[in-house]
Design a protein around this nucleic acid. Structure first.
Lengths: 197, 197
DNA sequence: GCGTAGGTACACTGATCTGTGAAGTCAACG
DNA sequence: CGTTGACTTCACAGATCAGTGTACCTACGC
């Protein structure tokens, strides 16, 4: 089947203690909402009802927490996407667009992965997670298109179609962040639907 | 003609004194390369060979400098784009893709506007500049497609085509940042070419 | 000659940043 | 009973953050 198993360690979060779980949840909200550099470790610890010492004992550094934040974001998103695909009509590639359209949480501040990549230096380990996440989405798109292809012609153009849909999807995601609503995603979905039928 | 005149004050930089010009140039490089929050005003002033006092006398605040940075980026980019369009083959919408492909400077750290929007709070004035910039590009695409349309059918689907190309373009721009090279832009251009002929 | 604009020099504020050290609490487990 | 793991308390380090106050310099236009 398609990529249910994780592509690499870059996307696998470690198991968490209760305090660590709270830290991660709070940090995820604050990082996404305000930006990573804009939030200090003191704030995260305080809002979590946990001491800064615990933060450093669990995650080693702020960077460690950032990595965990992105990994968790991917895992959560990926799980919901796979659930959706289980019950999706063909062509299932459209369900990926639907998933982004249904993700109300991310509509007002855009894509957590793009935001992180944009504000962190290129050699920051978080970049690996972002790359792995985007690669997983692109790969899934290709696999879905291939599996749901009906005509022989469809089967020969799988990769080109996947590239096209992926560009549309990514364009829609960033525009959604600026527009503040999901209309770009719906527009991209409509175009994608036209391409697949 | 198309939008040679600026859409609004959001994109118009003020005239600059020599010191201010140096500050802006240095700040632009550092903001883009490292991120806005990651760079302090002390660093900017020092690298510019200018005192911090001058920075605050000219730009009022760090936020003021950030605004000027994005406005300057837009102005510079827009000028080069218009130059390119003067000598471009039809359909000229493809020249917009070419402009992004030729912009080597932005290939390793993505789009300055997306990066800024991603790390700044939603109510930050810089968001207005980003929105105005993206809106200008989308509008230009529409005007070029309309002006270069050949068949009657083309003319009826101008806005839909412009939306499609804009999504492809934006998708390509963000992917270029992560990939570190311009192949996503070339791919988007090829797809766009197919759509326009 | 006088004002003004652009700039220098530099000390200084008060807040905030990431990260550490040392000692102590508490519950679960063997 | 003893150990281990999760967590607390709290002080503290050393740097960096944006931004200000004061005084002085210089070149140019009127």
């Amino acid at each position: 089947m398609y990529a249910t198993e994780q592509a690499s360690d870059d996307l696998c979060p470690p198991p968490l203690t209760p305090g660590a779980a709270r830290l991660l949840e709070v940090a995820s909200g604050l990082f996404y909402e305000q930006g990573i550099h804009a939030i200090g470790v003191d704030t995260i610890a305080e809002e979590s009802g946990v001491t800064k010492r615990t933060l450093y004992d669990r995650f080693g550094s702020k960077d460690g927490l950032v990595i965990a934040y992105l990994q968790a974001r991917h895992a959560q998103w990926w799980d919901r996407l796979l659930e959706r695909l289980e019950v999706a009509d063909r062509p299932r590639a459209l369900a990926v667009f639907d998933a982004y359209a249904a993700d109300e949480l991310s509509s007002h501040r855009g894509c957590a992965f793009w935001n992180a990549a944009g504000e962190l230096p290129v050699n920051h380990p978080a970049h690996r997670v972002v790359r792995a996440h985007k690669h997983a989405v692109r790969r899934l798109l290709g696999e879905l298109i291939r599996a749901d292809a009906v005509t022989e012609e469809d089967r020969t153009s799988v990769e080109a179609t996947a590239d096209h849909l992926f560009l549309l999807l990514e364009g829609a995601i960033v525009q959604r962040g600026l527009a503040g609503d999901i209309t770009p995603v719906l527009r991209a979905r409509a175009i994608a639907e036209g391409l697949l039928t």
